[in-house]
Amino acid sequence: MRIVDVCAFYTPAGGGVKTYVERKLQAGPPAGHEIVILAPGPEDKIEEVAPGAVIATIAAAPFPLDRNYHYFDDEGRLHAALDQWRPDLVEVASPWTSASMVGRWRGAAPRALIMHCDFLSAYPYRWLQGLFSIETIDRRLDWYWRHLRKLDRQFDFVVSASDDLTQRLRTGGVAKAQTIPMGVQPGIFSPDLRDEQLRREMLEQCDLPPEATLLVGLGRMAPEKRWPMICEAVLAAGSHHAVGLVLFGSGRDRARVIRATRGSPHIIVAPAITDRARLARMLASADALIHGCEAETFCMVAAEGAASGLPLILPDRGGAADHHRPGCGIRYAACDARDLGERLTAYLGEDLLAERRRAAALAPQVRLMDAHFSDLFAVYKRSVARAAA
């Protein structure tokens, strides 16, 4: 079947969505499916990246908050592109304008909405935390839930990558929500890539000896990632233990993150790593991965850390929480810098070598992205068969 993915979040400079899209383009054709990524971009362009794998861009306006992205701003042109591609199934990667546009498309193909973003956790819950409960915020933002319930009626199913988000969607009246977890790229991440010399070099950059604990963090420098909270907790734990943190990432919040280090030589804010092989070596050579964002829909970074044999230090809400494994790291109260600092301090006093050995033993069990696509394509195939019948 031909699957057209209307992907508003795709950009060649992107992160997790780009990784997901590129693997889908590789996974689809061997499974007998043609994959067309239909994305907004600077110009009209069709690129066949492989037989049965196409990236087609529609000229669209730049996204005001991030010039790496564009957004669909012409419904007629999007509908014309869908008519031209004649999909067997349409997938939409954003619950906003592009989903509404596809919902109004007059084509007969089944439609799937993929929840690659958790708007409420990323913004309203974060902005209003401490002032209102989540239940109160949901009631005040009933317009958003009405929007999602309308999409639920227009689409054949809604896919979430975490049970946390799926349950919140169902509670909010999105009856077709179902969980299909994502996974990591195969053949890239492994505990076998651990390099003790690389670990020593990273600790030296943190002005610490080899006996210290090396934490790594990966992700965009954006407010919802909560890197200043991570820095605050590591600084607090550093009063009791020798611990270094290397943060890899880029984004508009970079200067704020650097200020949050308070000039500590033990926290390094490094550029994002685009070389996946180098990233895998960096991860495998650390002692634990730390993450602060409770708004992740899956948390690819946590999955990659687990596949690299790392214990994980994660919030107890959102997609990141799904990756916690007993005896291989800790969960802390999401959004709570004090709780993270206290739990991290206690955790650094434990036998971290044993934790890392357990994490390395469990690494081969981490779900691969191809398993996600196998499950997703099976759902799509049943939906197309029902539509044909």
Rank of each mutant, 00 (worst) to 15 (best):
3 I>C: 15
9 F>R: 12
15 G>L: 03
16 G>P: 02
19 T>R: 12
20 Y>F: 15
26 Q>M: 08
57 T>F: 08
60 A>V: 01
62 P>H: 12
64 P>L: 02
66 D>P: 06
73 D>A: 03
75 E>N: 02
83 D>I: 04
87 P>G: 05
93 A>L: 07
96 W>Q: 09
99 A>G: 05
104 R>W: 01
109 A>G: 03
112 A>F: 12
118 D>W: 13
123 Y>T: 12
124 P>A: 10
133 S>Q: 08
138 D>N: 14
140 R>I: 08
143 W>K: 08
147 H>C: 00
150 K>Y: 13
160 S>E: 12
169 L>Q: 10
169 L>K: 04
175 A>F: 12
176 K>F: 07
183 G>Q: 05
187 G>M: 09
196 E>G: 05
200 R>C: 11
201 E>F: 00
206 C>N: 04
206 C>H: 06
207 D>W: 10
207 D>Y: 05
209 P>R: 04
212 A>D: 08
214 L>V: 04
223 P>N: 10
229 M>T: 14
231 C>H: 07
237 A>F: 03
241 H>V: 03
244 G>F: 12
245 L>I: 09
245 L>S: 04
253 D>N: 14
255 A>E: 15
255 A>G: 11
259 R>E: 15
261 T>R: 01
267 I>A: 00
268 I>V: 15
273 I>N: 02
277 A>Q: 12
279 L>R: 11
280 A>P: 00
282 M>T: 14
287 D>C: 03
290 I>N: 00
298 F>D: 06
305 G>M: 07
305 G>C: 07
310 L>T: 02
317 R>S: 12
322 D>A: 15
323 H>F: 08
328 C>A: 12
329 G>A: 07
335 C>R: 13
336 D>K: 04
351 D>C: 07
352 L>W: 01
354 A>R: 09
374 S>V: 08
380 Y>E: 14
